[in-house]
Simulated assay, not measured.
Amino acid sequence: MESEARRIRTLGILGAGRLGTVLARLATSAGYRVLAAGSKDPALISPAMKAIGAEAVTAATVVTESDAVILALPLGRYRTLPVDELRGTLVIDAMNYWWGSDGIRDDLSDARTSTSELVQEHLTGARVVKALSHMGYQDLEDEARPSGSAGRKAIAIAGDDPVDLSIVAALVSDLGFDPVIAGPLSSGIMLEPGAEAFGADVEAAQLKEMLDRFPTSQRGIVVARARGETPHQV
């Protein structure tokens, strides 16, 4: 199986804030080797990472030694990501636009495109999948459950390559959540702030219903009009 052969073993995380730390803990608990980098000297986060079984390293080490890299940075910094070094890499975009940390950015709030498409446009040659972005870090921390558990919550993912989607779906399941395919990378806009699924802490069936309702939602109508499409109004 191609997806099994390419299964993630070493997971890199760029960003060692609250989301990055929670994801590192979930991944180490699931048996992954985790390399995490913050924006400063790795020594500053080394004790915290060591306590959860992860390794604090430089961003360069994360990029060169990981099978996949999670972006848990402020979205406004996406243009600082190294294009050449990430070429060919599976990049999992867990970022969202927050005006408080990113500033007022019209380019990050343009309804004509999802923010993950902006990341993909910058990271030429990388394989970007939107995932682990719509559930709050505290819910991620508290709600992880083994596969098959009653009431297990779901995480939506969006991407253009079926193999990459299957790889990320396996990671999401290992972290403790049921994966739900939202669609191609452009569908990541259904997981962004302003959409019903953003902040969702629900089971797979409910999450799928939220995604199905997006075209007729207020946000969905705004997106359709911005993209020159006919809104699906009820």
Score class of each variant (00 low, 15 high):
residue 152 R to W: 02
residue 200 A to R: 11
residue 4 E to F: 10
residue 129 V to C: 03
residue 163 V to G: 03
residue 100 G to M: 08
residue 21 T to I: 05
residue 33 R to W: 10
residue 28 T to G: 01
residue 88 G to F: 13
residue 78 Y to M: 06
residue 178 D to V: 00
residue 161 D to Q: 07
residue 80 T to S: 07
residue 202 V to E: 04
residue 191 L to N: 05
residue 200 A to K: 11
residue 2 E to S: 08
residue 26 L to V: 07
residue 116 S to Y: 13
residue 143 E to R: 06
residue 150 A to H: 04
residue 31 G to M: 05
residue 69 V to S: 09
residue 47 P to I: 02
residue 41 D to M: 07
residue 81 L to V: 04
residue 184 P to W: 08
residue 226 A to M: 05
residue 217 S to I: 15
residue 200 A to I: 00
residue 92 I to Q: 02
residue 9 R to S: 15
residue 151 G to D: 01
residue 48 A to G: 10
residue 107 D to H: 07
residue 169 A to G: 10
residue 103 G to Q: 05
residue 95 M to G: 01
residue 32 Y to K: 12
residue 82 P to G: 11
residue 46 S to V: 10
residue 42 P to Y: 08
residue 106 D to Q: 11
residue 75 L to I: 00
residue 91 V to D: 07
residue 61 T to F: 03
residue 39 S to K: 13
residue 198 F to N: 14
residue 144 A to R: 00
residue 58 T to H: 11
residue 220 G to M: 03
residue 144 A to Y: 02
residue 20 G to M: 02
residue 127 R to K: 07
residue 38 G to K: 01
residue 230 T to H: 14
residue 99 W to C: 13
residue 90 L to F: 11
residue 60 A to G: 03
residue 181 I to K: 11
residue 111 A to M: 11
residue 38 G to H: 02
residue 208 K to H: 15
residue 76 G to F: 13
residue 143 E to W: 02
residue 174 D to R: 10
residue 112 R to V: 12
residue 40 K to S: 09
residue 104 I to L: 06
residue 24 A to L: 14
residue 77 R to W: 10
residue 16 A to R: 00
residue 169 A to V: 05
residue 21 T to F: 15
residue 143 E to I: 00
residue 14 L to C: 14
residue 227 R to L: 06
residue 93 D to H: 08
residue 92 I to T: 05
residue 194 G to C: 15
residue 124 T to M: 14
residue 39 S to L: 13
residue 219 R to E: 08
residue 160 D to G: 14
residue 167 I to W: 01
residue 132 L to T: 09
residue 98 W to H: 15
residue 18 R to L: 12
residue 215 P to L: 13
residue 148 G to A: 09
residue 204 A to Y: 12
residue 23 L to E: 00
residue 172 V to N: 03
residue 158 A to N: 12
residue 72 A to P: 00
residue 147 S to Q: 06
residue 92 I to M: 12
residue 159 G to T: 11
residue 25 R to E: 10
residue 26 L to N: 15
residue 82 P to I: 04
residue 133 S to C: 15
residue 75 L to S: 03
residue 28 T to F: 00
residue 191 L to G: 01
residue 198 F to V: 07
residue 114 S to E: 05
residue 39 S to M: 10
residue 172 V to S: 01
residue 146 P to G: 01
residue 138 Q to E: 13
residue 59 A to W: 01
residue 133 S to H: 09
residue 74 P to N: 14
residue 131 A to M: 09
residue 22 V to G: 00
residue 230 T to P: 03
residue 224 A to G: 02
residue 19 L to D: 08
residue 15 G to N: 06
residue 210 M to I: 00
residue 73 L to P: 07
residue 119 V to Y: 10
residue 20 G to V: 04
residue 126 A to E: 09
residue 198 F to S: 10
residue 221 I to A: 06
residue 78 Y to W: 14
residue 174 D to S: 11
residue 162 P to R: 04
residue 89 T to Y: 11
residue 25 R to S: 08
residue 144 A to H: 12
residue 141 E to Q: 06
residue 108 L to D: 04
residue 136 G to R: 13
residue 4 E to R: 09
residue 97 Y to E: 12
residue 187 S to L: 11
residue 126 A to W: 06
residue 21 T to H: 15
residue 218 Q to V: 11
residue 172 V to W: 03
residue 176 G to A: 08
residue 109 S to R: 11
residue 119 V to M: 06
residue 201 D to C: 12
residue 94 A to F: 13
residue 56 A to S: 12
residue 61 T to D: 13
residue 84 D to A: 12
residue 132 L to E: 10
residue 148 G to M: 03
